[in-house]
Design a protein around this nucleic acid. Structure first.
Lengths: 331, 331
DNA sequence: AACACCTATGTTACACGTAACATTTTGTTG
DNA sequence: CAACAAAATGTTACGTGTAACATAGGTGTT
């Protein structure tokens, strides 16, 4: 590491103390205009870059929050981070980002890294954590928001939606449009997928219907959607609707229908989940459960920063609900 | 900020000095087995989390590299980061991730933040930077890799591919399969899009054909692909091929073909760019230029860490080339 | 002229893990 | 058991921005 310019370097150069230079950055109005001008010159010339290390050493706030998302190629989480940054930018907080690949062990490692940087708070997108993760977060004594779903054993605060209820509502809606042989298409059998399955099954049972599921442990993709629908049609006598655990599967399935001449929604109703842009480019447009991810990001960051700033939260759990895209794949 | 346990706390608790505890973490073999056991207990009990701040203050390496990607919902960059982490994990480096939303001003802010954390090196995915970005990086005196493309004015090292050459090759290939009225579909008019356009145009001119482009300033998406193809068909007399600046547009366009009964590749040849999974789920499979993004990530991280460790790089520029998916959308 | 008060700048101390060197303890061998 | 080596632990100093307090110089008021 080469010697970057320090405040001391700039101060020496001007025959003043680093304290005045520090003030120039923190509260310029406390520095005499003439001095301010001199410092501005020297700073520009030296290309000084703020060094966070000393601030991290003191017990002051780092004004940084850690964010762990499961994936770097999922619009759900990019929208979430967008929402978070709306707030952090306005509050001049920084975010330190890490991704876990849906693996609690990796999440643990990343959280440990973020904590080593003395973040003031943490936003997590998963609710399944290792024991050590929970211990570390407790010990760190910083506020934590788990977002996207409503965990049974929250670490601290929660901003999300009830995926079981959303699935129940969606499937009930399918049944109301006169579909009876509805199959659940699932991939990557994580908690959220399971919750949706529960909602699906409850809706089916309550309507006197029998739930039928096809699933793959692999990551969701369009091709998995095609394969799963094929498998559903091969396995079950009659299928007149599919409830897909996300839009990737749904779009793949609709693709499959197009290839095979299956009419949507007349032969087969399709319900997606997440409400991504891509669903609306299909013909017919995909009907999908919209998860309010940007709003979740905004609320999570707002809440976290308020708590960091010492405000007591009005509540520890916020359910932001869900809605539907204006699709045509249902009836 | 609550008082997290420090090394001193653990040491006090055991009646030893923090130096021994520090050694327990850095080089446990230098600590007597009995002491090691005692420390292990105390550490576990207190939930100690390493504090990076003092290390950042010393001039030692932080063993962290900064990575700035343009987008959090693009498989291209998630594969790149995967590649990077293959190496950083093996070398026990950490990465600090930030995203710029394709905006050089935002990139500047994020780079400044990463530098304030004393990263040992930086990987950037864009080649367009503000003046201040260049100044800061120079002043920081750390190695920098720009990846994905081959910039005209590199900051330091480069790992990427020649997008103009790739586009030239791809379009030449289309022409070789007897297509003559090939339109270029472009979105988000960034540098890489422009480079591909240049390659496309050169291939057309050299074949005695006239380049024709439809473009949108908006972000690429399936729906933009549909719209752009519609626009191309409306605008130009004859169209028998499209070269799409990425797979999102290509897949949208192929969707459009399916809706409109246009046969691919007989009526219209389609060439994509990036070689994402989704293209291979189409029917026919999308032919696409494959950019070796994981390899770029691996090479970038390898190179950067070698330089950080004091090795002189064998070269400053690495062109990793391109290939094609085994598609059927061409002929 | 004396005093209060303000502005601008300076002084001091602090946070904490670790490299480098110093010292103590344990182990080994003739 | 003396003598030395090796292992284990301790001591010291360091890096750098900033909060809190101190001081110097100036302005204004009575």
């Amino acid at each position: 590491m080469t010697n970057r310019a320090s405040l001391q370097d700039i101060a020496d150069q001007l025959g003043i103390t680093k304290m005045t230079v520090s003030r120039y950055f923190r509260s310029p109005e406390k520095v005499a205009p003439a001095t301010r001008e001199k410092i501005a010159q020297a700073v520009k010339h030296s290309g000084y870059i703020h060094n966070r290390a000393p601030a991290l050493m003191s017990r002051a706030l780092s004004r940084t929050i850690g964010v762990v998302i499961p994936s770097l190629s999922n619009q759900v989480f990019s929208a979430l981070v967008d929402g978070i940054e709306t707030i952090t930018n306005a509050e001049s907080f920084d975010i330190l980002l890490a991704h876990s690949g849906y693996d609690p062990k990796v999440e643990e490692r990343k959280i440990e890294m973020l904590l080593s940087y003395q973040v003031d708070g943490m936003i997590l997108c998963e609710t399944e954590h290792t024991d050590r993760t929970r211990t570390m977060l407790k010990q760190a004594g910083i506020p934590v928001v788990e977002c996207m779903e409503l965990p049974e054993a929250p670490i601290d605060m929660v901003v999300g939606l009830d995926h079981k209820a959303a699935a129940f509502n969606a499937v009930t809606r399918m049944i109301a449009s006169n579909k009876q042989h509805i199959v659940y298409l699932a991939a990557r059998l994580d908690r959220r997928t399971m919750l949706r399955q529960q909602g699906y099954e409850q809706a089916m049972w309550e309507a006197g219907l029998t739930p039928q599921t096809v699933a793959t442990p692999f990551q969701s993709s369009f091709s998995q959607g095609m394969k799963l629908l094929q498998q559903a049609l091969d396995t079950f006598d009659r299928v007149d609707g599919i409830f897909c655990t996300n839009d990737d599967l749904a779009v793949g399935a609709m693709q499959f229908c197009k290839n095979e001449g299956i009419r949507v929604p007349d032969d087969l109703a399709v319900m997606g989940y997440n409400g991504l842009d891509i669903g609306l480019t299909m013909q017919p447009k995909l009907t999908s459960v919209v998860t309010p991810r940007q709003a979740i990001g905004i609320k999570s960051a707002r809440l976290l920063i308020d708590v960091i700033n010492g405000k007591a939260p009005s509540d520890k759990l916020f359910d932001l609900g869900f809605s539907y895209t204006a699709g045509e794949s249902l009836s």
